[in-house]
């Protein structure tokens, strides 16, 4: 195992190196605000008939009359203090809205990721161990088809099949049946909250709402994950050290699991960041299809209503999450591969 100190150093360095990227994101959202069509002050004015004087007043309040660099400094100051403005749609501060809705998005994303991983890894490994067998062909077909199905189509097809035709899925809107009792809010994750409260009825209600959108999203990332697992396992199994293991009489299980799989998982870990980012993007589509009350659908509604403060907040949030995810991936990789600590 690698020592803790180099790992912490690595994590710190990685965090530092992601700062420029984060700063870039902030600049981008700032510019986004400036180039967006329309004058923000006009939106914030009381109505379409607001007088020029009123608009000017709001402009002054928002600091839009100041030179751009000063606006940027104020913007950074606000972000530093957790002020992301107010949503016109809900009338709430954007931070509050995002905090309320984030657990819904995360619950969906993590469930889907877990589902995808628990299917993709075994499938990829089995396929790689028996190249050109029936299993292998089936997995390859699944991978090929999987990347071609847009999430919004597969989600709608799931609804058609399980809600309309079979009638076994609940009405595809929201996180929990409106008639079911809402568990007390602890973590914001309904599955965890209801389990903590011992309310298994609510747990079941939440789970049955979650399963279709989670499957939709899992299907979307299943293909790249399985494909990667298969490819890297295939490559590892033909490498020299596997031959060494065989030549020295290690058991098949040891060769495959300890020598093969552990090495094959390294590239899979590295693409986890990309996979997660794709999922955050796909969230927008899935949340729209299933009317899921997450951050993405919130941002989308705001975007379509030309309400830009939530969009800005959302983009910043996504970038922040993404940096965290990459950091985690990096630390995992550092734990798994002793070679990188030397660079």
């Amino acid at each position: 195992m690698v020592g803790v100190a180099p790992l912490a150093r690595r994590a710190g360095r990685r965090l530092l190196s992601s700062l420029p990227a984060l700063f870039g994101v902030v600049i981008f959202t700032f510019l986004l605000m400036r180039v967006l069509p329309g004058d923000p002050a006009v939106f914030f004015a009381s109505g379409p008939n607001a007088g020029q004087a009123e608009i000017e007043e709001i402009r002054r309040q928002m600091g839009l009359d100041k030179p751009i660099p000063e606006q940027l400094v104020r913007y950074l100051w606000d972000i530093g203090h957790g002020k992301l403005g107010r949503s016109m749609g809900t009338g709430q501060p954007v931070v509050t809205d995002l905090a309320n809705r984030l657990p819904a998005s995360l619950e969906l994303t993590f469930t889907a990721l877990l589902l995808a991983l628990s299917l993709a890894l075994p499938l990829g490994i089995i396929a790689a161990l028996r190249p050109n067998s029936a299993v292998d062909h089936a997995v390859r077909l699944l991978c090929t088809l999987g990347v071609c199905v847009p999430t919004f189509v597969s989600g709608l097809l799931f609804i058609y099949a399980f809600y309309y035709l079979l009638g076994i899925a609940p009405d595809p809107t929201g996180r929990i049946d409106i008639f079911a009792s809402q568990p007390p809010n602890v973590t914001g994750f309904l599955l965890i909250d209801s389990a903590l409260a011992g309310d298994w009825e609510a747990w079941w209600a939440a789970a049955s709402q979650l399963i279709l959108p989670a499957c939709t999203m899992a299907l979307f990332v299943l293909a790249p994950l399985a494909r990667m697992t298969r490819a890297s396992m295939l490559a590892v199994m033909t490498s020299d050290f596997i031959r060494t293991g065989d030549a020295l009489g290690l058991s098949r299980r040891r060769v495959v699991l300890v020598y093969g799989l552990r090495n094959a998982l390294l590239p899979v870990i590295t693409i986890m960041g990309i996979v997660f980012s794709t999922m955050l993007g796909a969230n927008v589509l899935v949340e729209k299809v299933f009317s899921w009350p997450g951050v993405a659908s919130y941002a989308l509604d705001a975007l379509l209503a030309s309400d830009y403060a939530p969009v800005q907040g959302f983009v910043l949030l996504m970038a922040g999450i993404f940096v965290l995810v990459n950091l985690t991936v990096d630390i995992l990789y550092g734990l798994a591969d002793p070679r990188i600590s030397i660079e």
Binding site: P20, A21, G24, V25, T29, L32, S277, L280, V311, F322
Partner: peptide, 18 residues
């Protein structure tokens, strides 16, 4: 890196909006 720091689909949304 800055480009990749966004979930790309979200980036595309934001760009079209902008």
């Amino acid at each position: 890196d800055v480009l990749m720091a966004f979930p790309l689909f979200v980036l595309a949304m934001a760009l079209v909006a902008a």
